[in-house]
């Protein structure tokens, strides 16, 4: 027996007995989709520069990417761990849906997902931890499968608001077929508006409102389009409406009962 073979055989026996894997396809897909949305949102809001996002204090929209989460054992049947809508009747979920409806009374939207989470997770928190959420997110489909409307309501980690120069530089760095603008309001809050295209042909129009007290709301409409001109034809929600929802003072979530550890880069 060669040494290589002896090592391989020994390591093979070391791997036994192999416990069943709790990780499921549904868990991975839910985490992957959510992470992708968060990343696109953060990129959309701040130009894709994580360092800038951290410096600008909006990284609640981009929690540490791969914080491991408890693996769910079963498929996404309603009410199971994998079902992100199991808290659809939570009062905070109801509030978010009500504010969206109030802002968009004539827009045909179908709720796809709504769930609480926090800085350190990529998936929905279990029901008994919803009170500790630092963000709630709602995703709607609007017509076709890829036409989506997304709302994120955040309690951000304590941070300094960006200066005007930082905002200006952030917008300038975007380049390409994107648009970016910002308004610093008298109350100190910041309204960021941005348009950008993702690599897979989705055009995203985002309004992000950073409020005093480390609060934040991001709203986003996403459409598949071939160009900005095409996207402008397909976006159905006017920018003033996005602004209105993002700045809606009633659209806020409670302080987490137990604040999670501050996010760290993974």
């Amino acid at each position: 027996m060669t040494e290589d073979r002896a090592v391989r055989e020994a390591l093979g026996s070391y791997l036994e007995p192999e416990p069943p894997m709790a990780l499921t396809v549904d868990t991975i897909l839910t985490a992957g989709r959510r992470r992708r949305h968060l990343r696109q949102t953060a990129v959309a809001a701040m130009g894709g520069v994580t360092a800038a996002a951290v410096a600008f204090g909006i990284y609640a929209a981009q929690p540490p990417a791969e914080a491991p989460v408890a693996a769910a054992p079963s498929a996404s049947a309603p009410g199971t761990q994998d079902d992100p809508n199991r808290q659809v009747h939570n009062p905070v979920a109801a509030l978010i849906q009500a504010r969206v409806r109030a802002a968009l009374p004539k827009t045909s939207l179908t709720l796809d997902q709504i769930y609480p989470s926090d800085w350190n997770h990529d998936v929905a928190l279990p029901p008994d931890q919803a009170a500790n959420a630092t963000d709630w997110q709602a995703l709607y489909t609007a017509g076709s499968n890829k036409h989506e409307f997304w709302v994120g309501v955040f309690v951000s980690p304590p941070s300094q608001k960006p200066t005007e120069a930082e905002l200006r530089n952030s917008c300038r760095r975007l380049g390409g077929p994107t648009k970016c603008s910002y308004v610093i309001n008298p109350d100190g809050s910041i309204l960021l508006r941005q348009i950008r295209a993702t690599a897979d042909g989705i055009w995203v129009r985002t309004v992000n409102h950073q409020r005093p007290g480390d609060r934040e709301v991001t709203v986003q409409e996403r459409v598949p389009a071939t160009s900005l001109t095409d996207a402008l034809k397909k976006w159905s929600i006017p920018v003033p409406t996005l602004d209105h929802l993002a700045t809606d003072p009633q659209l806020k979530i409670p302080e987490p009962k137990v604040q999670p550890p501050l996010p760290t880069e993974s």
């Binding site: 070391y14 894997m21 992957g32 990417a65 491991p68 693996a71």
Partner: peptide
């Protein structure tokens, strides 16, 4: 997961690493 287990010596941690790997892979899959 078997590779991860051999690296870290803990099946639960190995599964966490695999989950994180696949979430990251999802981001770049296209």
């Amino acid at each position: 997961r078997r590779t991860a287990y051999l690296m870290c010596g803990d099946w639960q941690l190995a599964e966490d690493l695999v989950q994180t790997t696949f979430v990251r892979l999802y981001q770049h899959w296209p």
